[in-house]
Design a protein around this nucleic acid. Structure first.
Lengths: 98, 98
DNA sequence: ACGAACGGTAAGTCTAGACTAACGAAGGTC
DNA sequence: GACCTTCGTTAGTCTAGACTTACCGTTCGT
């Protein structure tokens, strides 16, 4: 899931879709890559549940998938709590094994 | 910053450090890669402000950097709001340009 | 002072995957 | 029905970067 957001181009697509839904050609117009490349990236983002598409004629309008966004948030919230707990514990106890 | 978490091995290191601080050798012991590989990954994570290290003798103990975690959370919170707004707007207005 | 851990760095290899070009399928328009 | 648009897919190329081996500096123990 974070694999999908690891690629810079894919992050750009992700951020474009955050502004509002777009078609494939409209996305490609704002990026320095070809349209097929955008299609391939969208496929990956779709499999990662980060975007969803609806067919409108021959056009496919893509938008962010709130479900995937919630999953990412949950992932980091989990580590946020773990990290803060470990951090607080480390501050209180400089060493423990004698 | 998300580039750093894009690599599976680096995510494993990240998740190990979420449990608690560790030395380089201790991290490498739980992963299927060599110790130098872990060192290289830690360098990337450090530059991304996701981990920090403290010297203890010849050992370097690494731990999660709360500052970096907060930045990641902020990034996704921003898109969370944008996405929900765009989503709600899309639901209310199926089309707009006549 | 000598040796042993521990870890960062350099050099080199090799694979995953990002990209383009070319083609084909489906839908809309006249 | 002919044509154009829009998009997904395939085949093939090429580069970024993940990994290992080897080496060197640093710090502790005796």
């Amino acid at each position: 899931m974070l694999d999908a957001l690891g690629d810079p181009t894919r992050r750009s697509i992700f951020e474009l879709l955050a502004v509002g839904p777009r078609s494939v050609a409209e996305i490609a117009a704002d990026l320095p890559v070809s349209r097929p490349a955008v299609s391939q990236h969208l496929k990956v983002l779709k499999e990662a549940r980060l975007v969803s598409s609806t067919a409108a004629g021959t056009r496919r309008v893509y938008s962010l998938d709130p479900q995937g966004l919630a999953a990412v948030r949950g992932y980091f919230d989990q580590f946020w709590n773990q990290a803060l707990a470990a951090f607080a514990q480390a501050v209180e106890k400089p060493e423990e094994e004698p």
